[in-house]
Amino acid sequence: MASLALDIKHCCRPCLRRLYIQKRSLTTTTSRRKHGAVPIFSDTPSPELNALLSTFRTNIFLPSHLIKLQRDLLYKKKNHSLLTAEEPATVRLGNEVHQLLPLNHITDEPATRASIAKVVKLMTETGDWKNLPGFLEGLKTARRVVHGDQFEKMIRRASDCGRIGVVVDCLRRVERTGMGLWDVRVAREVMWGVLGKCVQSEWSEEGVESGRKLAEVVWELCFDPKHVPKMVGLEDPKKRPEIAGVLVQMYAAKAVMFEGSKDEGGAVEKWVQLMLRVWGNTKVGVKERDWNDANYQLTMWAPVWHGILMAQKLLGAQSPLGQELGAKLQELESVIQQARLVLSEHPHQDGNIRRGLKVYNQLSQVSV
Rank of each mutant, 00 (worst) to 15 (best):
28 T>Y: 05
92 R>F: 09
25 S>K: 04
177 T>Y: 13
50 N>M: 01
131 N>A: 04
242 E>R: 14
214 L>A: 06
321 L>R: 01
266 G>Q: 04
309 L>M: 12
264 E>W: 10
208 V>Y: 00
25 S>R: 06
269 E>T: 05
227 H>Y: 09
273 Q>D: 06
294 A>G: 15
339 A>C: 02
12 C>A: 15
132 L>A: 01
292 N>D: 05
138 G>I: 02
14 P>H: 10
75 Y>L: 13
119 V>W: 02
344 S>V: 06
330 Q>S: 12
210 S>R: 06
293 D>G: 07
106 I>L: 14
16 L>K: 10
279 W>T: 04
357 L>I: 05
261 S>N: 08
348 H>R: 09
303 P>K: 03
162 G>L: 00
349 Q>W: 11
67 I>Y: 01
362 Q>M: 09
58 T>H: 10
39 P>C: 12
291 W>H: 14
23 K>T: 00
306 H>T: 04
249 Q>C: 09
240 R>H: 12
259 E>S: 09
4 L>S: 15
77 K>L: 13
189 E>P: 07
123 M>V: 01
106 I>E: 15
86 E>I: 11
279 W>V: 01
260 G>N: 14
115 S>N: 15
356 G>R: 00
184 V>H: 11
64 S>L: 00
27 T>P: 07
183 D>I: 05
301 W>Q: 07
361 N>A: 15
90 T>Y: 01
220 E>I: 05
359 V>G: 02
199 V>G: 03
2 A>Q: 15
260 G>R: 08
47 P>T: 06
250 M>E: 09
224 D>S: 15
248 V>R: 04
305 W>M: 03
26 L>S: 06
293 D>S: 06
48 E>V: 07
143 R>L: 10
192 W>M: 07
116 I>A: 03
3 S>A: 08
214 L>D: 13
64 S>M: 00
258 F>Y: 13
283 K>E: 11
327 A>N: 10
241 P>A: 03
192 W>L: 10
42 S>W: 08
242 E>A: 12
128 D>L: 00
32 R>W: 07
161 C>L: 02
104 N>H: 10
302 A>V: 06
242 E>V: 11
156 R>D: 04
368 V>G: 04
78 K>H: 06
77 K>Y: 09
91 V>M: 11
287 K>E: 11
266 G>D: 03
109 E>M: 15
32 R>M: 11
84 T>Y: 05
38 V>F: 14
167 V>H: 00
238 K>E: 04
225 P>L: 07
79 N>L: 10
233 G>Q: 02
184 V>T: 09
217 V>L: 13
188 R>D: 14
87 E>M: 07
76 K>N: 12
48 E>S: 13
